[in-house]
């Protein structure tokens, strides 16, 4: 008797269905995994920043100023454009702005965007700023409002 004739048809259908489902499951699993890795790659390629979350510091005579931002892009070997939520923080003050050009060699920071400075009992809003001489001089540019409590 032919071997194939001895196989129960019902069992064959169940087995075949199970096998198809298994292949389908494996296929879907691999497909989804691939999708995830593609989005990861996409994320990496769409972030055009040279530096993600850059950090720098300026060592002043009396205190150190720490600089952080969301993104940073090299404009030249020394100059970096710091973008989004750029913070200058020392033990005495905090200065927040967007789009700050930071010169790593000369330790000069400059911005033409609205800047918010805050220290003890003091707040300053200006149209931009320059930080020079290792953080000793802060020049708030344009129309400026200083409030003292």
């Amino acid at each position: 008797m032919n071997f194939l004739l001895t196989i129960n048809k019902k069992q064959l259908i169940i087995f075949t269905s199970f096998f198809i489902f298994l292949i389908l499951f494996i296929f879907i699993f691999i497909f989804l995994n691939n999708e995830k890795s593609i989005t990861k790659i996409n994320n990496i390629t769409t972030n055009k920043s040279d530096i993600v979350k850059p950090k720098f510091s300026i060592s002043g005579k009396e205190s150190e100023i720490f600089i952080t931002a969301t993104n940073g892009n090299f404009l030249s070997e020394e100059k970096i454009l710091l973008e989004d939520n750029v913070k200058f923080k020392s033990k005495d003050f905090q200065l927040i702005s967007d789009n700050v050009i930071f010169d790593r060699k000369n330790l000069i920071a400059t911005s033409d965007n609205e800047s918010k400075f805050s220290s003890k009992n003091t707040s300053i809003i200006s149209a931009g700023f320059d930080i020079t001489e290792n953080g000793n001089i802060i020049n708030f540019k344009g129309q400026t409002i200083l409030k003292i409590k």
């Binding site: 002043g60 009396e62 300053i124 200006s126 149209a127 953080g135 000793n136 001089i137 802060i138 020049n139 708030f140 540019k141 344009g142 129309q143 400026t144 409002i145 200083l146 409030k147 003292i148």
Partner: peptide, 12 residues
Amino acid sequence: EITTDDGIEVFQ
């Protein structure tokens, strides 16, 4: 309140 048209230069 202090307001200026051409900024404030701070010499710390």
